[in-house]
Design a protein around this nucleic acid. Structure first.
Length: 955
DNA sequence: CGCATCACG
DNA sequence: GACGTACGTGATGCGA
């Protein structure tokens, strides 16, 4: 490895990349003092449970661990300064005089760092009256003379003068080798002239005076020209520039003193012979004990993992090392980066003084991850239990607000319970954070921020501006995978976060977050904020690369506060009406059940498809019965309807029972349970990143599937009512998806029909079946309507035949005629499928991508399915985009008009509002206008509004 | 916890 | 000509 001729620069003295065989002959000289200060200033203050500050100890330990993992050396020495004063002060008392006093928090860490060095079984060097740099110079010379390569581990530029044949430097902070080229880059001269340059340029940090007016650039130029400092000073009169000449003459002595200051002493006494620096086998037990005593949990984990890898602990189940970190593979998926390599620094914040640090960090960096913990999943009514923040990877805090107060909150006195921990009152926290959370210059990042936004809004804080890592992922990878934090952490960070179950348990023994002990709550909650920030850091830049910035910025992100307001508002239900409906349904279900059992000749559970199938097809022998893949008879409504048509009265009775049972269990019973005591209303959760097409979905309860198609169902819809003095307004897009088919496929005849405001299904029927509009029959129109829907779904002859109850042959001929009349459609469908095959995704008109993993599947059935998805997704997705555009504009438009209307629900093509009675007409007109203007196409968008005291009436 | 069923768009 | 079908959701009850 070394260059025996000494005429060219040496190769790095050890193999730091693991590419070649490790060089065991080398000496590593670690600049311990340099690292203490760097670690101390780079890491936030942290303390052991006993209050001892340990941030520098942690940074130092991490550095040693990394070094030992990276290099295999025969000899290592960690070199320290011994005292503040050294021989340089004897001839220049002001040397390093401007250094500030050692911070109080650092003082106790010096001893711990020496302990750490011992725990790592590494030899250390220090000598009174000499700086670490002098010892490094001395031992580097010794090793060099012994023909052994030296690597100086430091980022201190003052050591660069030592670089030369057999001596290299390595900066572990930047993971950078420093050879003659790097030195030249820094000082403009070869390493052996570095002291001359420094002598001229001086160093304000070390209070080395140099020559005033001369910096590194000029110094390098002069030294290059004259060869060295002495020659330069001897020839100072010859310098052309008068000012420079005069300074050099005047400050010649000062330059010579400066050189003595920066020149390292390579002949210092040796506290230990070179042989004593040999690396010893580390004592892992001792090391782990030391690290545990400092509370460095994640380093302990790393050391234990290293031990396993080295075979010191038997364990076959080690994780495989991930692919190149951060590399982007062909699918644009970023290879996981192991999170274990980042030290976690999680802090519990229990007073406002500790909080201030975090606000300052947010102000400094301009971005902070925010997460809230609550005692329930309904943010409209949940109690805020704590807030976590993260300002840098691995750096997070948790601020408990309502822990250990469950009994107190319930008004119970429990003298056995421990007293609640010290916590900031929620109102005080909000007051302290409000400025930061509303600061337009500080970006607040959350994962599913809609939830947190609601909690802050309920506490009088409107968080803005925001980013949402979940929505960024959704814009980037919608359809490719889910976007929950745990899933994304696994995928992008190769990390499994602490699960909620682990912290709160599950089922009957589940506890709420306010009952979680603070240490566990800290681990869990701080980690959530930490991971959120890491995901954001990783995903946000990808928006630009994927050209998905506009989708995210104009469609999804602005929706967060708007949906949060809708959820928070909730919707009023007529609980008495629901109760009466439930009772009515219960009575009728019993009657029907009696009938069915009588017709079957025995008692059985009608709600069990298995038992029902056996009764119908085995016991009663009503036809053959179709069995599904599970081997059970199918008893779904299409089967029962067929049986009913054949005159089997039991089938119709079962259909009736099914319908009523569904309405009772899913709606009249369940909705009552969902009325929140605090608000007297029902608060659904709209999922913003759940569907493959860009639609929203609604859960807990789902208010996007409230019955409307049957008379019984409409009764349930009428139980959705306006508050006293208010009205409900329902505004829905008319035929939006079919309009988009006409627009996107550019179907002239269909576009004309829409522009003329025709009954679109009748117009289609006229075109396809050649029936003049004045001779249209309901049946022909019904067939055309079914085909129109079929188009949107990615039509198939089989599907259409089943829908219309005709043969697949007939259905195919309908489709053929349709595609002839609207020939542009066929072209568009083929182009869309081809695009999907080429790209693996399809796009909406607004650029949202919907990934279709199955489009290349070898199985023709699965591929055909993906092709239908590829047809449907741009249509459904564009409609969803348009609705989002409308929703983003409506609240501001209402506010600007002075309206008090509140948006409550979205049902894909419909928006529901609650509005003071007197404003209803005006609001309805305004919403219609905004919806119709949400996009501008050659096909008009049409929205229709209804007003009523309940949802049934308004629709 | 997966399946079948059915409510909506 | 395969292969099993309309697209997108969520909640419920059953039964292993």
């Amino acid at each position: 490895m070394t260059d025996s001729t000494g005429t060219t620069a040496p190769a790095p003295t050890a193999d730091l990349d693991g590419a070649a065989a490790p060089d065991r002959s080398g000496l590593y000289l670690v600049d311990g003092s340099g690292f203490i200060f760097r670690a101390f200033h780079a890491l936030p203050m942290m303390t052991r449970p006993d209050g001892t500050p340990v941030n520098a100890v942690l940074g130092f330990s991490n550095m040693l661990l990394k070094l030992l993992a990276d290099v295999k050396a025969e000899a290592v020495a960690v070199v320290f300064d011994s005292a503040r004063l050294n021989f340089r002060n004897e001839f220049y008392p002001d040397y390093k005089a401007h250094r500030p006093e050692t911070p109080e928090e650092l003082k106790p860490q010096f001893a711990l760092i020496r302990e750490a060095t011992d725990a790592f079984c590494l030899p250390s060097l220090e000598l009174d009256g000499y700086e670490a740099d002098d010892l490094i110079a001395t031992y580097a010379r010794l090793a060099q003379e012994a023909g052994r390569p030296v690597t100086i581990v430091s980022s201190d530029k003052d050591l660069m003068q030592l670089v030369g044949p057999g001596v290299a430097m390595y900066d572990p902070m930047k993971n950078k080798h420093i050879g003659p080229d790097e030195v030249f880059e820094k000082f403009g001269v070869q390493p052996d002239k570095v002291v001359d340059v420094q002598a001229l340029a001086g160093d304000s940090v070390d209070n080395v005076p140099g020559v005033p007016g001369i910096g590194v650039k000029t110094a390098a130029q002069l030294i290059t020209e004259y060869g060295d400092l002495d020659t330069l000073l001897a020839n100072a009169e010859k310098i052309k520039q008068p000012a420079r000449r005069q300074k050099l003459i005047e400050f010649a002595d000062q330059a010579r003193v400066s050189r003595r200051l920066v020149q390292l002493e390579a002949n210092a006494p040796q506290p230990k012979p070179l042989e004593d620096l040999r690396v010893r086998e580390p004592d892992h037990r001792r090391l782990i004990d030391f690290l545990k005593a400092q509370g460095f949990r994640s380093i302990v984990a790393r050391v234990e993992m290293e031990m396993k890898r080295d075979g010191r602990i038997a364990d076959a189940g080690l994780p495989a090392s991930p692919a190149t970190p951060g590399a982007v593979d062909a699918d644009g998926v970023v290879a996981p980066q192991p999170t274990a390599t980042v030290e976690k620094r999680y802090e519990l914040v229990q007073d406002l003084a500790a909080l201030e640090v975090w606000v300052r960090r947010a102000q400094a960096s301009g971005v902070i991850a925010v997460d809230t913990e609550t005692n329930s999943l309904t943010p409209a009514t949940a109690t805020l239990v704590g807030v976590s923040l993260s300002t840098a990877p691995g750096l997070a805090c948790y601020i408990p607000l309502a822990h250990g107060s469950a009994a107190a909150a319930a008004g119970q006195l429990d003298f056995d319970a421990p007293p609640p921990p010290k916590q900031i009152p929620t109102a005080d926290l909000m007051a302290a954070l409000k400025g930061m959370l509303e600061d337009p210059a500080i970006l607040k990042v959350g994962h599913n921020f809609k939830f947190d936004h609601q909690l802050f809004a309920r506490n009088g804080v409107t968080v803005s501006p925001i980013d949402d890592s979940m929505l960024i992922s959704y814009a980037l990878d919608g359809g490719a995978h889910g976007h929950g934090m745990d899933e994304l952490a696994e995928l992008h960070l190769a990390y499994t976060p602490i699960s909620f179950k682990e912290v709160c348990g599950t089922g009957k023994t589940q506890i709420t977050f306010d009952q979680v002990p603070l240490d566990k709550a800290l681990d869990y909650a701080a980690e959530d904020a930490d991971i959120t920030l890491r995901l954001w850091t990783l995903l946000k830049p990808r928006l630009v690369e994927a050209r998905m910035v506009t989708v995210y910025e104009t469609l999804d992100r602005p929706l967060v506060p708007i949906i949060a307001d809708m959820e928070r508002a909730g919707v009023r239900l007529d609980q008495d009406a629901l109760k009466r409906l439930s009772q009515d349904l219960a009575v009728r279900l019993v009657e029907i059940e009696k009938d069915v059992h009588q017709l079957a000749g025995q008692s059985f559970n009608i709600g069990s498809p298995k038992q029902l199938g056996e009764i119908l097809f085995d016991v009663m022998k009503l036809g053959a019965g179709k069995k599904g893949k599970t081997g059970a008879y199918s008893t779904d409504s299409s089967v029962l309807e067929e049986l009913a048509e054949q005159g089997h009265s039991i089938a119709q009775r079962v259909l009736d029972w099914r319908q009523l049972a569904k309405l009772k269990s899913t709606y009249t019973d369940a909705l009552q349970e969902k009325i929140e005591a605090l608000t007297g209303r029902v608060h659904t959760a709209f999922a913003l990143a759940a569907t493959n097409t860009g639609r929203l979905s609604s859960t807990d309860p789902n208010l996007q599937n409230i019955p409307i198609r049957t008379e019984e169902g409409k009764k349930i819809r009428r139980a959705f009512i306006a508050a006293p003095g208010n009205r409900l307004i329902s505004v829905d897009y008319s035929q939006i998806e079919l309009r988009l088919v006409a627009e996107m496929a550019n179907i002239q005849a269909l576009k004309d029909a829409f522009r003329d405001g025709l009954d679109i299904h009748a117009a289609t029927a006229a075109q396809v079946f050649g029936v003049p509009l004045d001779q249209m029959t309901p049946d022909i129109r019904r067939k055309a309507k079914a085909i129109n829907f079929g188009i949107i779904y990615g039509i198939s002859g089989f599907g259409l035949s089943r829908q219309l109850g005709i043969t697949p042959g007939e259905a195919n001929s309908f489709i053929k005629t349709y595609l002839e009349r609207f020939h542009e459609l066929k072209v568009w469908m083929e182009a869309t499928k081809s695009f999907a095959r080429d790209h693996g995704y399809v796009e909406t008109l607004f650029g949202r991508r919907c990934y279709m993993p199955g489009i290349q599947d070898k199985n023709p059935a699965r591929r055909a399915f993906a092709e239908r998805q590829a047809i449907n997704a741009p249509i459904q997705g564009t409609a969803a985009d348009i609705m989002k555009r409308a929703m983003n504009r409506v609240p501001a438009a209402l506010a600007a008009a002075g309206s008090h209307a509140q948006m409550l629900l979205q049902v894909h093509d419909e928006l529901l509002f609650e509005v003071p009675e007197a404003e209803a007409e005006q609001a309805a007109a305004l919403v219609r206008a905004v919806m119709e203007g949400a996009a501008s196409f050659s096909v008009p968008l049409v929205a229709e509004a209804g007003i009523g005291s309940n949802w049934g009436e308004a629709h």
